[in-house]
Design a protein around this nucleic acid. Structure first.
Lengths: 120, 120
DNA sequence: CGGTATCCCTCGGGATACTG
DNA sequence: CAGTATCCCGAGGGATACCG
C-alpha cells in the first residue's frame, strides 16, 4: 500500500499519478475493466510486457487496492485478477484522460514537423 | 514537443501522464491556474524545488504546449509564465484527479498522514 | 533576475534463466 | 500456470557552483 509519508506528495492529485504510473498499469486496468482475467491471458493481451513486469505491475496495483488477486487452489494453478471497487471508480477518470490525450494529439495537426527535442 | 512515435504510448491516456509526470509539474500548473507568475515568485512558492529543477520542468511544460514563457526585454530581466489554452483545458482534470486522490486517502483510514499545500 | 554546467546516485524497467 | 531470481542500463532528479 502507498506510504503517504514517504512519498510526500505535494497535492492529492499526485496520488493518482502514483497509482497508475507504471509501464503497464493503465493497460492492465483497461483490460480488467472488461472483466476478470487470468495471468497468462493478460500476457497474451500484452505480448510486449515481460512476465516479470506484469507480475510487478499487478502486485503494485493489488497492494494499492485497485485490483484483487484471487487464487484458485487447483492444479494446474489458476490466478484471476479483477478490479476492486476503488479500481472501478478509477475507470471514468481514465476515460477522461484518454479523451484529453486524443484532443491533445489533434491540437498538433502538423504531426510531421514536431521537433526531435527530447526531455532530458 | 512530445514525440508520439518514440514514446510509443499504449493508450492516449498515457499521454496525459507523460505531460504531467515530473516532480513539480502539477504544482506549477496549479499555481499558474491562479494567473501568470514570474520565475522567482515560483521559486518562493515552491521553496523545496531547486532552481535547476524548476527550469527543467518549466521547459518541458512549455515545449509540450501547456504553458507559455514570456520574456520582457528589460533590466533586470523579467520572465513570466502562464497557462496556454491547452493548459487551461487540463485544469478540470487536475481537479478530478485531486478529488479522487482525496477519496482514495480516506478509503484507508489508517494511513492519514499527509501535508497539503493548498492551491485553490 | 533567471537561468546553465557538472557531477553523482537512485530506481524503474529490460533480458534472461530458473521454480513450485 | 504463474510466478522468482539475477544482472544490467538509462532517465530523472539532487547538490552545488558559475553566468549574462
Amino acid at each position: 500500500m502507498i506510504n503517504f509519508r514517504e512519498k510526500s506528495y505535494r497535492c492529492t492529485s499526485e496520488i493518482v499519478l502514483g497509482l497508475v504510473s507504471g509501464k503497464w498499469k493503465i493497460s492492465i486496468l483497461n483490460h480488467l475493466a472488461q472483466g476478470p482475467i487470468r495471468f497468462n491471458e493478460l500476457r497474451r493481451l500484452l505480448p510486449e510486457a515481460t512476465q516479470r513486469m506484469l507480475t510487478m505491475q499487478l502486485k503494485m496495483l493489488e497492494s494499492d487496492g485497485l485490483i484483487i488477486r484471487k487464487v484458485y487452489p487447483v492444479s494446474p494453478p489458476k490466478v484471476e485478477y479483477r478490479l476492486s471497487e476503488l479500481g472501478e471508480e478509477l475507470a471514468p477518470m481514465l476515460l477522461m484522460l484518454c479523451e484529453f490525450g486524443t484532443t491533445y494529439i489533434e491540437s498538433f495537426p502538423d504531426e510531421v514537423s514536431y521537433s526531435d527535442h527530447k526531455h532530458a
